[in-house]
């Protein structure tokens, strides 16, 4: 299984993909995960490849190999189309962060759904950021989206709480578990 997480530096993608990797390792899979640090942290595009199976060789997902794309930002969902499997599940957080060319007024923020539709019919826009804001912390969007993602994967709900408990400091655990549960309630067809 190949999961691609995309978004913008600072959205908490790395922690979300760390947590997914931990859960899949604990459920007995070989796991590899790859992303780029460094300059990407300065508000640039971020992409994290997470692969799990009995055995994983390449840390990068081959083109056409991505089963699930989880995008934390709308535009970033369409930046890596070549990785998508035909009929891949695409989950897009409804959140638009204008890139520099849009900020300066020289380009319009594009509607990316038509591009994605050429690859797969399974596209779901979800209000992750709105839920996070309603819960009082816009930065909690990563755990909400992870909660949603968990409903598409095999490990039982409890495995995720084990990972949250082992990876997060005690004072932020309760808020993250709450966010995770809210994410699990998001319904996609």
């Amino acid at each position: 299984m190949n999961v691609l997480m995309t978004g913008v530096g600072g959205q908490g993608i790395i922690l979300a993909s760390d947590m997914l990797s931990e859960v899949m390792m604990r459920s007995g899979c070989d796991v590899k995960k790859s992303e780029i640090h460094g300059m990407a942290q300065r508000g640039g595009s971020v992409m994290s490849h997470v692969r799990f199976a009995e055995r994983v060789d390449s840390p990068l997902i081959p083109f056409g190999g991505c089963d699930i794309l989880l995008s934390f930002e709308e535009l970033e969902a369409a930046r890596y189309l070549k990785y998508l499997k035909k009929d891949a599940t695409v989950i897009i957080n409804q959140y638009r962060l204008a890139p520099p060319a849009v900020v300066s007024g020289s380009r319009k923020y594009p509607d990316v759904v038509p591009f994605l539709r050429e690859r797969t019919p399974n596209i779901h826009l979800v209000p992750g950021t709105a839920i996070a804001e309603e819960m009082g912390n816009a930065r909690g969007v990563n755990i909400i989206l992870l909660g949603l993602l968990s409903t598409l994967l095999d490990p039982p709900e409890s495995a995720w709480y084990d990972a949250i408990n082992s990876m997060l400091k005690e004072k932020i655990r309760a808020a993250n578990i709450e966010g995770f549960k809210r994410g699990r309630q998001i319904k996609i067809q």
């Binding site: 300059m39 990407a40 300065r42 083109f63 970033e76 369409a78 070549k82 520099p100 849009v102 594009p110």
Partner: peptide, 18 residues
Amino acid sequence: ALQDGDQPDLPPRPPSMC
């Protein structure tokens, strides 16, 4: 030949000063 399909022309998102 490499099969990476057509990529739409999206505005780039380079890193920038905070």
